[in-house]
Amino acid sequence: MSRALLLLAALSASALVASCGDPVHDAEVTALGPEASGVSPGPDHRPGQPCLVCHGGQGPASAQFSLAGTVYQAQDNTVGIGQVQVKITDVNKSTGTATTNSVGNFYITASTYTPTYPADVELDYTGLSQAVQMLTHIGREGSCGYCHFDPAGPTTPGHVFLALDPSDLPQSGGTP
């Protein structure tokens, strides 16, 4: 009798734990789809996607970011660009920085820097006459891809880009 009771209690506890998941978050992760062919999970994976869906603390990724995204060369192409300095300045004037890698991805870990919103972002690139400012502030979301996705429309400005046209980019800067 006591064994049956213990089994019942264990089953109930398991069911309780299982039911504590976040189905909304699970659906968001699933909606991202599988990894691209030939790209393993790591700094180069999933450019353009909302990084903090998985890297925001709810998993499944273990690394937790406060700000992450992808910078592309220009408005009319989706070629990622490396060596772009991303600088975020929060409402307390505290700043965090990161540099894009060869596919344009960048991230700032939550343990390194977590902004107090609202925050402003600017992009700097060797050879540009001045840093590129994001037109509005960020209110709460650390994934660039949450708001910036293609195609551009009434609810999104499209992907993050450094220049309106690739020819506007300095020749010496180059894309790694």
Binding site: G139, R140, E141, C147, T156
Partner: peptide, 24 residues
């Protein structure tokens, strides 16, 4: 802004030039 109330996911939704637009 688009990540806050310029978003259809919010109960309180706002439109304007700092965020979500109407009619393209």
């Amino acid at each position: 802004t688009l990540d806050c109330h310029g978003n259809f996911e919010r109960n309180l939704q706002m439109w304007g030039c700092y965020g979500m637009r109407l009619d393209g």
